[in-house]
Write a protein that binds this DNA or RNA. Sequence first.
DNA 1: TTGCACAATGGCAACGTTAACATTTGGGCG
DNA 2: CGCCCAAATGTTAACGTTGCCATTGTGCAA
Lengths: 334, 334
Amino acid sequence: MAAVKKSVSVKDVARLAGVSEQTVSRTVHDSPSVRPETKERVRAAMRELGYRSNFAGRSLRRGKFKTVGVAMFNITGTGNLDRMEGFAAAADKHGYAITLTKVDGHPYTLESASSRMSALPVDGMVVIMNRMPADFGTFEPLPGMQTVLVTMLEHPLCSTVDNDQFDCSRQVVEYLLGRGHKTVHFISCPERSLSGMRREEGWRETLRAHGIEPPRLVRGDWTAQSGYAAGQALAEDPTCTAIYASNDAMAYGCIRGLESCGRRVPEDVSVVGVDDSLGDIVPDRRLTTVRFDNKRVGMWAVDKIADADGGASGVEHMLIPGVLVEGDTVRDLC
Amino acid sequence: MAAVKKSVSVKDVARLAGVSEQTVSRTVHDSPSVRPETKERVRAAMRELGYRSNFAGRSLRRGKFKTVGVAMFNITGTGNLDRMEGFAAAADKHGYAITLTKVDGHPYTLESASSRMSALPVDGMVVIMNRMPADFGTFEPLPGMQTVLVTMLEHPLCSTVDNDQFDCSRQVVEYLLGRGHKTVHFISCPERSLSGMRREEGWRETLRAHGIEPPRLVRGDWTAQSGYAAGQALAEDPTCTAIYASNDAMAYGCIRGLESCGRRVPEDVSVVGVDDSLGDIVPDRRLTTVRFDNKRVGMWAVDKIADADGGASGVEHMLIPGVLVEGDTVRDLC
DNA sequence: TTGCACAATGGCAACGTTAACATTTGGGCG
DNA sequence: CGCCCAAATGTTAACGTTGCCATTGTGCAA
C-alpha cells in the first residue's frame, strides 16, 4: 500500500533529478542558464513524479496572481456572454485567468463588489454595472487593485468602457435621414435603464442637430408585445415613415403591429432595431439593426488591467461604437 | 513622503494591536477562544491598517483554494449564461469562487482542459462539453482534482450532469398524444449535435413505445429559415396534425411556414418547440415549449465538487428533466 | 494550601516557490 | 601557468498564514 504524498514539490523533483530546487525552478521557467541536458533530466523527473507547480506558493513569493476578477450583479443579461468571451480571450492572450463572482445587489454599491474581490486571488477587477450604484461618485478602488468599470459613465478614479449608445442612435437616425425620411419616430424603453436613456438622448439630439423637432416618442418596456402596441399606434400617424426601436424585440413586435393594421414593412414604413439579438429566430425578416461588439468591450477591460500590471497605469474612458447592419426592413425613399 | 508598504500582514496588525499573530488569525476566523474585547482591539487595528487577508498565504498553508475551475471550449452557446448563473450561485453558497477558462479546441480533448486547469488555483473543475472529446473514453482526472463533466454521456471516472434530452422528447410526444394526436412529426437538427440526436431518439422511442411507427423526419439546421421550409413541406401532409421541432427557432419558423401555406396554428396543426428561447422576442405567440433548468445543472456541478471537498466522493450521473410550458400553439383534439 | 481544569494567548515551524547572492567549473588569453 | 570572465548550479531566506503545542492566568473543589 503506497502512501499517497499530498503533492509533489520542487524539492521532490530536485531530489530525483539530482539537482537543486533552484535549478528545477529555472527549468520550469525555461531559463537560458540551464544546460539543455540538465533541463531534460529535470523534465523527465517532473514527468515521472507528475509534478504540477503550486499556484499558491508562486503567488505568495511573487506577489502576483495573474488573475482578473469579474464582479457581476446580474449574470444573466444581454451581451454578458459576449463580454465574457472577450474577458476570456484577452486573459488568455496575457496568460491570465478570470475569476467570476456574483455580487449581491443589496445594496447595489461598487464598494460591495470591491470588498468581495479583495479576499480573492486577483490583481485587478472588472465590475459590470447594469444600473447606477449608490456610491458611484464617492467610490475609491482598493490600493493596488486596478479597477475597470463596464459602464458608459465616466469615473474619476476608475477606467471605464462600454458600447457607445449615443453614437448608435446617431448612426441610425442619420442612416434613415440619409434614405430620405423626413423624421424618425422612436420606441423607447423604461426610464430606469441607463443605456436606454442614452439611446433616447442620441435620437433626440441627432434629430435636433439636423434641424428636426423630435416627434412624440412611444414608451415601450423591451418586450415585443409593447413594440406591437407601439406599431399599431404609429400605424395611424401618416407622418411616420421610419421607426427606430430601442431593441430588436420591440422592432420586430412593431413590424408585426404595423402589418396587423395593413401597413407594409418596408414599403410603407421602415423599421430599425438595436442589438442584433434576433439571430436565426425569425424566419421572414432580416432586421436592419445595430450590432455591438461586446467581446471587444470585455477584451478592452482585461487588456487595461493586464497592461497596468506591466507598469502603464492611468485612467481611461473608452466607448466602442456599434456597427449598423443592413437588413431588409428599410426603404430608400431617394 | 510616506513609504507605501507593499501589503499589510497579520504581523503588522498583531504589532499594532499588541497581540500575537496567532491571535490575529484567530480573530479573522472568529474563533471562540479569543476574548471579545481582544477581538475588538484586533479588529480596530485591522481597520486602521486596511488589512486584507492574503489568499496565497492562506491557500499555501491550508492546501485548499476554495475555488472551482470551469473549462469551456466555447463560451458562447445556448444555456451557458444560465449555467454560469448556477455555478456562481452554488459557489457563493459554499464560499467558493469560480475561475473561468476558455480552452482551445484543437485538439478537442478533456486532457487539454485538465492540463490547463492544473496550473490554476482550483480544487476541482467542471468541463462543459459541447461535442465528443477525442479522449472521452480514456480520460483520467488529475489525482485530487474532482472533475465534473457537463454532458449527458456517462463517464466511468467523472461525475456528469446535463439536461435530460430524452425525457424532454418523451414529455412532448406524450403531451401531444394525450391531446388526441395520432402521431407526432419531428423537425430534427444536424447530426453532429449530441443533444439533438438524443432528442431524436427520445421522439422515436416514445412513439414506438406507444405502438406508433415514427413518420419520416424533416432535417433542419437550428435556424428559423429551415423551420420555415419544414413547415411548408409538412403543410401538404394531411396526416400531420402535430409537429415537434428540436428548438424554438425552428418551431417558430415552422409556424410561419405553415401559415404561409394557409394552415392555421393551432387550429389545423399544433407545434411544440424546445428551449424556451423565444422569450419576449415574438409578439403574437406563446409557443408551447420545454424549459430547461440550466442554472440547476450548473449548481449541481459545483455542489458536487464542494461536497467532495468536504469528504463525500463517488462518481454520480445526473440528468435534470425540463418542464413543458404550455403556450397557445397546441390544440386539444379530445 | 494545593491541585486541577479550563480559558486565553504566544512561539515556532512549515506550506511551495523563487529572488538575490554565493559558489563552482571550464575555457580563453596574456 | 596563472588570471579573469562567464556559464552553470547551489544556498539561503522570505513571501503570509495557520496548525500544533507550550505557556500563562483564573476560578474552584479537595
